[in-house]
Simulated scan of single mutants.
Amino acid sequence: MIKKSTIPVLDNCSINNDSSSLLFVDHLADYIAMHHNMVFPHKHNFYHFVLFTKGSGNHLIDFEKHEIEAYQIYFMAPGQVHTWNFNGDEEGFVVNFDPEYFQSFLLRTDYLNRFSFLSGQNDQIVFTIPESNRKDAVKIFEAFYQTSKNPTVSDLIRVSLLQLLLWIESWHGTKTEKTSNPYNYTIFHNYQRLVEKNFKEIRLPKAYAEQLFITPNHLNAICKSYIGSAAGEIIRERVLLEAKRLLVNKNLNINEIAIELNFNDNSYFTKFFKKATGLTPDEFRKNNS
């Protein structure tokens, strides 16, 4: 495993200067003013989401650029790489909470997995609130912000956050239409989780299919029904994303990154990366310096 320092990882207590707090809620303008210098690639070890009620500029999540627009909302899972280029006119709300925030509160420790927008999947994490829901969004976020300022009602704050997430899910839904076939969706979701945990060591869909007790053909069919690509593409995309994250860290040379990602040699890694992006690892690094 790589021992050198990597992309800075921010934790919740460093954001809100409270080592005991697992939740932070603020008006976006105040948050940006407080952290105006945080405009470098960084990761969070907490869930982070923002509602823009106004603003301009852009931000990058895992190297995908998103232009800000009014009533855009974005969600980030722990470990994603983020930076921003705001123009200073942003208003809205920001919410940060640790993965452990609901640990002693919910019987189902995997409850947050039901929310597609907390999955870290790029096609699920940035969207615009429909016009018919915008007034409600501001009221609900502001009510949650006010509730969060009273630490004596900690359980009520947790319930309020869950209500907020459930409200978002009620109108956003999911592009994967998980309710149409709960069995297939569960397999698809479990496959994504297995890939996230094992992508450095396990590169063959067949090995994952065995763990899911289905055939490789069945796994491919399920993946194609949800994302239009075969199961192997999910593995390749996850390896590629990790390569990009590591390349941002200039303390690591290309050979170290290839070893970290279990490529046999530097040249094989370079061929893989260029085939996927059209750039060599060095060219990608220069373009993202």
Rank of each mutant, 00 (worst) to 15 (best):
F188I: 06
K271F: 07
I2M: 07
A70H: 14
D89I: 11
F24Q: 08
Y145A: 02
R236W: 08
P99T: 05
E256W: 06
F144M: 10
D136F: 05
H172M: 09
S229Y: 15
H82E: 08
T128R: 15
S5Q: 14
Y101Q: 10
Y71E: 00
A258T: 08
R158T: 02
Q80K: 08
Q124S: 12
F93P: 14
Q124I: 05
N45S: 13
L246F: 06
P151R: 07
D136C: 09
N253P: 05
Y71Q: 01
P281Q: 04
N37K: 14
F93R: 12
F97N: 08
L60K: 15
K4N: 03
L246A: 10
K274W: 00
F49P: 03
N190G: 03
L247G: 14
W167D: 01
W84D: 15
A70N: 14
H44S: 06
L156G: 07
A209F: 06
Q121R: 15
L60G: 01
P281D: 07
K139L: 14
Q211F: 03
E237R: 14
A143M: 03
I129W: 08
R158G: 08
Y226M: 02
N181S: 13
N87H: 13
H42P: 11
V159D: 13
E169H: 13
L51P: 05
Y101W: 07
N113Q: 12
Q163P: 02
N264K: 15
I15T: 03
L204I: 08
N45L: 07
N16Q: 12
N217P: 01
L247P: 09
S21N: 06
Y31M: 01
R134A: 01
Y208E: 01
G232V: 02
I187S: 03
V81A: 11
F86D: 00
N287L: 15
R285S: 10
N217M: 09
N87I: 05
F102Y: 13
N198S: 03
D98L: 11
N16V: 01
R238N: 02
K54S: 14
T128L: 08
E131W: 02
N264M: 08
Q72K: 15
T280Y: 04
I125C: 02
E90Q: 11
H82P: 03
L22D: 13
T186I: 08
W171R: 04
F273G: 12
T152D: 03
T83M: 12
I157R: 11
P8E: 00
Q163E: 08
K250T: 15
T186Q: 15
E90C: 06
I32A: 04
N184V: 01
H35E: 07
L60E: 12
K65D: 03
W84R: 12
M38S: 13
E100K: 15
L166Y: 07
L252C: 13
Y208G: 01
S229T: 13
N45M: 07
A230Y: 13
H66G: 04
H82C: 04
L107S: 14
T83V: 05
S104W: 04
F46A: 11
R134N: 08
K244S: 09
D18C: 01
H218Q: 13
W167L: 09
N17Q: 13
E210H: 11
T53E: 05
T215E: 00
